[in-house]
Nucleic acid binder design. Structure first.
Length: 491
RNA sequence: CGGGGUGUAGCGCAGUUGGUAGCGUACUACGUUCGGGACGUAGGGGUCGUGUGUUCGAGUCACAUCACCCCGACCA
């Protein structure tokens, strides 16, 4: 099996690329650096969206939509923000095309130059805070809890499907609060929301923490992150939640009258996750047979495949299959009955394994006669035959078990690949030869962090919240440190 | 933006000393198959990335150009 996929152990990044294409999730487009998300990949995104959107609303947020274009001048309002994004902005300079004078093709009309150039949003803080200025006047207008689902553009040098593309989809929450404490709580609450989603929907164990000065969002006071370990030993940042302090409020002059009638700048957060989560899903769980999707995000949770000779057999098996399908659908599962006569069962088995469908039911003449059905699970590739009457209860329990199992596998993998390291030699050896998470002491200085990055390509992924206080010496500089931080090479 | 590589059927590729383009797969039709990626027969599909040049003749040689992929620097 798996002869159609590059072997994961042989060439991890080729395996990943093959998988995205062959599982029909996405492909490169005619536009450099931009991908086409195909229906199967987009269906996963829709599931991610649906659950996150539900959770955002359950915590008091509402959706809105702000413009794709941002006046260039807005960007320069917040100094570190410009600094962070300037190098990767797409800029609209003209608003019209015309036929070339020589009659060959069309050109940008030089007479249609924009008065002020527009930036294609790499993130929306500036346009949103410029708008909030008009919306917020009193403490009664607060908190303002808004999210938007949008596309953004960051002009990247090198791109990879889902992991880094020039244009990508995400959600960005932008909230405004009356007090520092409330904004900080919001940022942390969202981080918890993300982490809970990762664990319960993506079956992905994550580490929550705060970013270092050099890794934090341009314009933030604090950036909170959740980090996951991929199967090649590299870390992937799942998403971030920022406490922005009053930086944007001051830059855009967003003040409100508090209960005493005094003017004060509002406190802000912003937070987002992107289609990159799909990349994380792939790299955390998939194997040499293809995708392994956690049941709660699988577009197809159960596939039913008939095994038959001739039309009358197909007819009677279809009757059973359709009955099972409607029962499963009633129980809340998304089910596909694949009765295509153009593919053989073996082909379908391999194909749905490639696509990571969690549970497969096969019904053949033997099953029809015995009142049974063959149940195969994607995560373990094991099969069993059960009584047809028990299908719904069995599948229901199985889905939960599959979720737990792939979560446990990922958690075990992370445990096996997390090292507590005290010497530089050991640090270097593990980063270079084994990969994984390395918990080590660090003196807290940007210079040391930079040096470690230059020497090993490893960065501080997070200062974990749950790291206990522990006296030690920085793994590189030997200076005192009070806790271990999480190092890894990262996507 | 540096270093390397590739452009020939939807996809993966071959194409010798220059002689008018082929294989696998996919696709279409029909038949036989169907409990782990079936087989037979017939068929359709190409400005050989683009341009210019050399030549009686260019997928093949020369020059130019464009695009994409991989590895680095930058990033979610």
């Amino acid at each position: 099996m798996a002869k159609f996929l590059t072997n994961r152990e042989e060439n991890y990044s080729q395996w990943y690329n093959d998988l995205v294409i062959k599982a029909d999730m996405a492909e490169n487009s005619a536009v450099r650096g931009c991908m086409v998300i195909k229906p199967y990949g987009y269906a996963i995104w829709e599931k991610i969206q649906a659950e996150l959107d539900r959770r955002f609303k359950a915590t008091g947020h509402v959706n809105a939509y702000f413009p794709l274009f941002i006046p260039k001048s807005f960007f320069s309002r917040e100094a570190s923000h410009v600094e962070g994004f300037a190098k990767e902005c797409a800029v609209v300079t003209h608003y019209r095309l015309k036929h070339a004078p020589d009659g060959k093709g069309i050109i940008v009309d030089p007479d249609a130059k924009l008065e002020e150039e527009l930036i294609v949003r790499p993130t929306s803080e500036t346009i949103i805070w410029n708008t909030y200025k008009d919306w917020i006047h009193s403490y009664r207008d607060l908190p303002l809890l808004i999210n938007q689902w949008a596309n953004v553009v960051r002009w990247e040098m090198r791109t990879r499907l889902f992991l880094r593309t020039t244009e990508f989809l995400w959600q960005e929450g932008h909230t405004a609060h009356a007090t520092r404490e409330e904004a900080q709580q919001e940022a942390l609450m969202i981080l918890d929301l993300y982490a809970d989603f990762a664990e319960n929907y993506m079956a992905l164990p994550v580490i929550k923490g705060v970013k270092t000065e050099s890794e934090k969002f341009a314009g933030a006071i604090d950036t909170y992150t959740f980090e996951a370990l991929m199967q090649d030993g590299k870390a992937l940042q799942g998403g971030t939640s920022h406490f922005l302090g009053q930086n944007f409020a001051k830059a855009f002059d967003v003040q409100f009258a508090n209960q005493e009638g005094k003017l004060d700048y509002v406190w802000a957060t912003s937070w987002g996750v992107t289609t990159r989560l799909i990349g994380a899903l792939i790299m955390a769980h998939a194997d040499n047979n293809g995708l392994v999707l956690p049941p709660r995000l699988a577009p197809i949770q159960v596939v039913i495949i008939p095994i038959y000779k001739g039309n009358e057999q197909l007819g009677s098996i279809s009757e059973i299959a359709n009955d099972l399908r409607s029962k499963l659908e009633k129980a809340g599962f998304s089910v596909k009955y694949d009765d295509r006569d153009t593919q053989k069962p073996g082909f379908k088995f391999a194909d749905y394994e490639l696509k990571g469908v969690p549970v497969r039911l096969a019904i053949g003449p033997r099953d029809a006669e015995n009142g049974t059905v063959e149940v195969a699970r994607r995560d373990t590739l094991t099969k069993e035959t059960i009584n047809r009457d028990n299908v719904v209860t069995h599948v229901t329990a199985l889905m939960e078990e599959i979720h737990q199992n792939i979560y446990r596998k990922a958690a075990d993998f992370r445990a096996e690949n997390t090292y507590s390291v005290d010497t530089w030699d050991e640090f270097r050896d593990i980063i270079e030869n084994k990969g994984g998470f390395v918990m080590a002491h660090w003196d807290g200085s940007t210079e040391t962090e930079e040096q470690i990055k230059n020497l090993t390509k490893a960065t501080v992924r997070a200062i974990p919240f749950n790291a206990p206080a522990e006296e030690g010496k920085c793994v590189l500089s030997g200076k005192p440190s009070h806790r271990r931080v999480l190092f890894a090479r990262a996507y």
